[in-house]
Amino acid sequence: MDFSFILDPGYQSYFIEGFVNTLALVFWSGLAGMVLAVLVALGLVAGPMPLRWLLRGFTTVIRGTPLLVQLFFFYDGVGRLLTSVPAIRESMFRPLLNDAFFFGAVAFSVSVAAYSGEVLRAAMMNVPKAELEAARSFGMSRTRMVRRIWLPRAVQLCLPTLTGEMILLLKSVPLVSTIAVVDLLKAANIVRSETFLVYEPLLLVAGIFVAMTLVLTAAMNLLERRFPGARPARRKTTDIKLGA
């Protein structure tokens, strides 16, 4: 085992770039994906019939195919199709279309929208009807009822699942190394090809991911506890055990 490559500033810069790109991808696709997920969930529970079918089809297709295939479809497929249209090629969007990071973020956002959208949909269905009726009887308009009661209550119900989805998102980031984004895995592969070290750079990245998962898990636990109306920390079973 030879980890001396860590001390080389040149190699360090690859890993730093990879680390920053990894975090940026999680942040942007987490944000955009969650906004889309709310729209998907709203459409699924309250949209008109054709929209519901469309969204059902969308979540089924996205959840039923590998993320890697989706990534290549967006980057190699859609990206190439768009650049083959002269009007788009000459437009101001040109730099975006060559940007693998952009397509990675798009693919991840779409994936988060489908998975978390279904989670949110199930949670919205599980909000007691009486609470929504109470909101209506207070004279809230439908949109206000959705904004103030239905969505927040639904998020309360599925928060642990949603935070789990964010950890899955973090763990999908290395897929973008296959479409030429310099993430941590790509950085490791560059260093591997330059130093002829087979495992060490990969092990370093594995270690970084273990640390990142731990930090993200802790942050998400904190969020779960801070979220308004969150249940108090689960009591130990011994407290509520009644006799033998």
């Binding site: 297709v61 039923g64 590998p66 290549f72 479809f73 190699d76 497929g77 190439r80």
Partner: peptide, 29 residues
């Protein structure tokens, strides 16, 4: 997926072959 990538590179029909691979995966799931 490896086969689909080869097909895409050989024909230049990237979107088509990724869709085809996706459809086969979808059928399996």
């Amino acid at each position: 997926f490896f086969t689909a990538q080869q097909a895409a590179a050989s024909t230049g029909l990237y979107a088509t072959f990724y869709l085809a691979a996706g459809a086969l995966f979808l059928a399996m799931t």
